[in-house]
Amino acid sequence: MGSLVLEALVKRYGASTAVERVDLDVRQGEMVALLGPSGCGKTTTLRMVAGFITPSEGRVLIGGRDVTRMPPYARDTGMVFQSYALFPHMSVAQNVAFGLEMRKVGRAERDARVMEALRLVQLDHLADRLPRQLSGGQQQRVALARALVVNPAVFLLDEPLSNLDAKLRGEVRMEIRALQQRLGLTTLIVTHDQEEALTMADRLVVMEKGRVRQVGTAEQLYEDPADPFVAGFVGRCNLLEGRVEAPGRFRTRAGDLLLCQAGGEAGEAILALRPERIALRAGGEGPARLAALTYLGAQTEYHVDFGATRLVVIGATPAAADPLRRLAPGDAVTLVWEASAARLLPAAA
């Protein structure tokens, strides 16, 4: 049994089901990300773990102890909120000490633990500042220190980077991951940002409409998605509806024939093909024509019409002497990919 276990967790609001039978086992020291679009049930799941929402069915176990009906302060969790939730009238040190005061920790021990937590996030020199005197990244670190100071069995993060700009998000993301690994914290993080989840978590739980669609490592979800939703949500992907005519032959609804991995029974299916798995070449006598291209610095994104089918191709930006550099919309191109790169997924998700 893991450090955090969710057993058939359900949350209903009247006739509406926000979370439907979530089962999850988070191992000691593991970081697991709940990933999905807004309204998929990931934050509701996190708040059931924290104790802010009572499950309609199922159990939450922390360290083998059933905490399903326990109040938040009795669960041995530390939580970082999306808004940071710092007290504006309290200093940095007082904000960090708040949880210890609620637990009746003595003054001497409390002060020592507060400074230790602030040193962990490299803010001990700002202990007397007020939140309004800090940058967004510094406020985020105070929120982290406040959650860490209680030595939680489970560390909970609710969209912790959503209020930071892109550059700062990348920096704080790495800091949180390094801290989590160094301290061996069992961590559950909620995010809608796939890059955030892919770079931080040991495993990902992809959710949609209250259901878990797939659980696995970043590589497993990217390379072997269980269904079209996961394929389209984790990374970029061309998803084409059609049918398998014979092993290795897929015909799109638009009537174009594409090569794919062998196998799969004849019938309705969805072909999934990652944009970076397609090689683009200038020229050709086939039906492929460049529709548009976008320069993205190190990469270039091409939109190619293959008959009546539109495919997105992403590749390294070509050198100045490369014929691809001179492509313009309407030019003929050739698309090449390994048959194994085109995966067949069930038509009905």
Rank of each mutant, 00 (worst) to 15 (best):
R289F: 05
A262I: 04
G267W: 02
V304F: 02
G286P: 01
L257C: 12
T294D: 07
A332I: 10
L296N: 06
P247M: 07
A269T: 01
G267M: 05
P287F: 01
D331H: 09
D305S: 07
T317E: 06
L271W: 01
A262D: 05
L259G: 10
L327T: 09
E285A: 11
A321F: 12
R325I: 07
A316R: 13
G297P: 07
A321Y: 14
G286R: 13
L273E: 03
A269L: 03
L258F: 03
R281E: 14
V312C: 13
L280V: 05
I270M: 07
A316Q: 12
C260Q: 04
D305A: 11
E265P: 02
T309P: 01
A288V: 01
G284E: 08
R253L: 09
I278Y: 00
R289I: 12
A254F: 06
A288N: 00
G263D: 02
L290H: 07
Q261K: 14
A332R: 13
A328R: 11
R326Q: 13
A292D: 11
Y295Q: 10
A272M: 13
L296H: 05
P323T: 15
L273D: 01
Q261D: 10
A266W: 04
I270H: 03
L257S: 15
T294L: 15
F250Y: 05
T294N: 12
L293M: 10
A332G: 13
